[in-house]
């Protein structure tokens, strides 16, 4: 039992998250455990949502990555807040706008990749400059507050769990079902192993790629919409930290960077871990430089631990 559990690559991100949690508790002598868990779930939820999308793209195989996630988050949040104009009862309208922006950004990304044959790194990076510019242009320095009911929902809790975490959980289950149980998931995992072989086996590989690039952008847009509602408005750099963390949670979570293999539970472990490790280093009173250095080293350590396990399995 323990052996099969240790063989799962996602277990390492959970162990790491638990260890970081334990170390903080050691310092506070057990005080504030509930608050810490609550904060980790709230902030981890955003990383988990964008991580799910990034995981699907990375599963497509080497070279596939979406670097436009931060810009898509910002653009979706900005346009959604503008559309809602702080009026009560417009939450669903805002969500629809965000999803629409996500679809548009995803299709535009894939169009660049497919029609211009640009490497995804270049295509999504270039596209993100456009999305960011659009966000700046439409924002014009205004800070529009989200509707009060939406803000209350985003910062609220149900049965003790943050609402944003519940939404992220539902999205995770949906992504898990798609990847593990649906025909599309098989197509995606097959395309990520060997694109030519997948095509010759009858998999519509371009459709798979298009849908995947659209999905990641929609998930980013939803994350942006929730984050803006959660933090009381959209700002132009709100997505910035999710560029690295979307990729980091995928790698720490045990998804194969070479493609063809996804890992949903690992995304959650890694998202919680990323938040907790920063909290831990903060609570031990370390300076910013040391904190970043240690964060980097810890991430490398987790990835090595997870990958050597897999190698032996």
């Amino acid at each position: 039992m323990v052996k099969t559990l240790l063989g799962r690559s996602w277990i390492w991100s959970w162990i790491a998250a638990a260890a970081a949690f334990g170390l903080i508790m050691l310092l506070t002598q057990g005080r504030g455990a509930e608050e810490l868990a609550y904060a980790a779930l709230s902030f981890g939820a955003f990383a988990a949502i964008v991580g799910l999308g990034q995981m699907m793209v990375i599963t497509l195989g080497p070279g596939n990555v979406d670097l436009s996630i931060p810009a898509t988050m910002t653009l979706a949040a900005t346009l959604a807040l503008k559309g809602m104009g702080s009026d009560p009862g417009t939450s669903l309208l805002g969500l629809a706008i965000a999803i629409g922006v996500g679809c548009g950004a995803g299709l535009a990304n894939f169009a660049l990749i497919y029609l211009l044959r640009l490497p995804p790194i270049i295509a999504t990076l270039a596209a993100s400059l456009i999305y960011q510019s659009l966000a700046i242009w439409s924002n014009r320095g205004l800070r529009i507050k989200p509707p009060a009911d939406l803000a209350d929902f985003a910062t609220g809790r149900t049965i003790g769990i943050p609402n944003v975490a519940l939404i992220a959980l539902v999205l995770s289950v949906v992504v898990w079902i798609v990847l593990e149980r649906s025909v599309f998931g098989r197509w995606l995992l097959g395309s990520g192993q060997n694109l030519r072989a997948a095509r010759l086996a009858g998999i519509p590989t371009q459709l798979v790629r298009a849908v995947t690039y659209t999905s990641v952008a929609v998930l980013a847009a939803v994350a942006g919409y929730l984050l803006a509602s959660f933090s009381g408005g959209a700002s132009l750099n709100m997505g910035q930290e999710y560029l690295l963390s979307s990729i980091a949670v995928v790698v720490i979570g045990g998804t194969s960077i070479a493609g063809g293999n996804s890992n949903v539970p690992g995304i959650w472990g890694a998202s919680l871990f990323l938040f907790l490790v920063v909290s831990m280093l903060n609570s031990y009173g370390l300076g910013a430089g040391v904190r970043m250095l240690l964060t980097g080293l810890i991430i490398i350590g987790i990835v090595i631990a997870a990958s050597t396990r897999r190698g032996r399995a």
Binding site: L189, Q193, N194, R196, A197, L200, G260
Partner: peptide
């Protein structure tokens, strides 16, 4: 090059 999906089982 053209056939095997190497990460998968025989069944898949």
């Amino acid at each position: 090059r053209d056939g095997i999906l190497p990460l998968w089982s025989i069944l898949r």
